[in-house]
Amino acid sequence: MLYAFGFETVGVVVGDLYFIDPHPEPGQEGPERGVRLEVRLLARQELHGSIYSAQPIVIDQPVWRADLLESVDTAPGSFDRTHHHPRFVGWEPGKRQFEQAMSGDPVAFVGAQLEDLPALLERARLDPSSVPEADVEALRGTIPEILDTTRRLLDRVWAGELARPPAETADSARVGWL
Score class of each variant (00 low, 15 high):
L2D: 07
L2A: 12
F5L: 06
G6T: 15
E8T: 12
G11W: 00
G11I: 05
V12C: 11
G15P: 05
L17M: 09
Y18Q: 03
F19P: 04
F19D: 14
G27Y: 07
Q28T: 08
Q28W: 08
G30Y: 07
P31E: 07
E32C: 09
E32P: 04
G34F: 03
G34Q: 04
E38A: 10
E38W: 00
E38R: 15
V39A: 09
R40W: 04
L41M: 14
L47W: 02
H48S: 13
H48P: 05
I51S: 15
S53Q: 12
P56T: 05
I57H: 05
D60F: 10
W64V: 01
D67I: 03
L68N: 05
L69D: 01
E70L: 13
P76C: 07
D80T: 08
R81I: 03
T82P: 06
H84L: 11
R87T: 02
F88Q: 01
V89H: 15
G90Q: 05
E92I: 08
P93D: 06
G94F: 00
K95V: 03
Q97C: 10
F98M: 02
E99T: 06
E99A: 11
Q100R: 14
P106M: 06
P106L: 10
V107S: 03
A108M: 10
A112G: 14
L114F: 08
L114G: 03
D116H: 11
P118C: 10
A119P: 07
A119R: 12
L120P: 04
L121A: 00
R123Q: 13
A124K: 09
D127I: 02
S129P: 07
P132A: 14
D135T: 06
D135P: 09
V136I: 12
V136S: 13
A138R: 13
G141C: 08
P144G: 11
R152D: 10
L154T: 00
L154M: 09
R156E: 13
A159L: 05
E161K: 03
A167K: 14
T169E: 15
A170I: 08
A170P: 01
A170Y: 00
A173L: 10
V175I: 14
G176Y: 08
G176H: 03
W177S: 13
W177G: 06
